Simulated assay, not measured.
Amino acid sequence: MAMKYKVYIDGQVGTTGLQLRQRLEHHPNIELMLISEELRKDEAERKRLMNSADVVFLCLPDEAAKEAVFLVENPNVCIIDASTAHRTNPLWTYGFPELSPAHRQEIAKAKRIANPGCHATGFIAAAYPLVKLGILSPDYPFSAHSITGYSGGGKGMIQEYEASDRPDAFESPRQYGLNQTHKHLPEMQYVTGISAPPVFTPIVCDFYRGMETCIPLHTDLFLKKVTKAELIAYFQDFYKDSNFIKIAHEESGFLASNLLADSNGLTLYIEGNDQRMTITSVFDNLGKGASGAAVQNMNIVLGLDETESLI
């Protein structure tokens, strides 16, 4: 019989918490510890469950996540935080195992893991190798646009988009984060080591789940002159051992944002020509961009197959 690890989700009724629960209910190695509805905000009961668990997921607003960490006194408990609160904290391990063997090893032994943000996941998957391989300088003037389904806005936005009396504007793509202070910008810069955050354009659209994050590349600013074919080869080699990140080309000439909805996959599409290229990360904002990545990190921490209960 498979060994069962105890897991508690603090914030189980939010979008990410519900997604986690759905994934973990069918995980053969997990015993999911659930809090009753009437005690959901009872600090003593939350504390009891947290300190009895092997892994605790925090699916809370930032300040609540910071406060929740102090409820865990058992040094053997691993906390995986899905909020923005700890993603640039050097005392926490950033949960993106595909970036290097060292990243994976750090996750495997960590007790405090910051789960990546959705837009940040798409940006980092493309930008990190470019800087690491010396193709682009950390001073390169990065920019990116990122299209997301409305589930990325949480329960409030989901209700707005699915309301029968919603405004006509909701039928159109809507740009937001207009002041260039989006909450994922600090981790984009911190994890990739670039000298400044990118000029970033997030866009929410009228579909439930899915995301694509696109970085335009000016080849005349490359440190290392490479053709499109060579860049594809670099990325294929960089992610050759990944179970979830793949490199592809879209033959149709159109690239949909929901191609990988309901999966934990992320595909990098390298398009354009030898003079002008784009790299676009396509994935599920609720999968590799949230709960799927959290389960993947949990599997690594517990020494399980990282693909368990993930598609």
Rank of each mutant, 00 (worst) to 15 (best):
A256F: 04
R209P: 02
F244D: 10
P97R: 04
V301L: 01
S252D: 15
A65G: 13
D241C: 01
L58K: 06
E106I: 04
P216H: 04
T213E: 01
F200M: 08
P202H: 05
M157P: 02
I158K: 07
V204T: 15
I311S: 12
L255G: 01
V295I: 15
N258F: 04
G287N: 13
E162I: 12
N89K: 14
D139N: 08
E250K: 04
H184S: 13
D305S: 09
I311Q: 10
P138R: 06
F238H: 01
Q180W: 01
P197H: 14
G11M: 08
K155T: 15
E25H: 12
L49W: 07
V301P: 01
P101R: 02
L266Y: 03
E106M: 11
I135D: 01
E25A: 04
G292W: 15
S164A: 15
H182S: 03
A144K: 08
E73F: 10
T278Y: 13
G253W: 09
L286D: 11
L24R: 04
F200Y: 15
D206C: 14
T267I: 05
T278F: 11
S252R: 13
A125S: 15
G156R: 02
A169C: 09
I270K: 00
K132L: 03
D241N: 11
F170T: 10
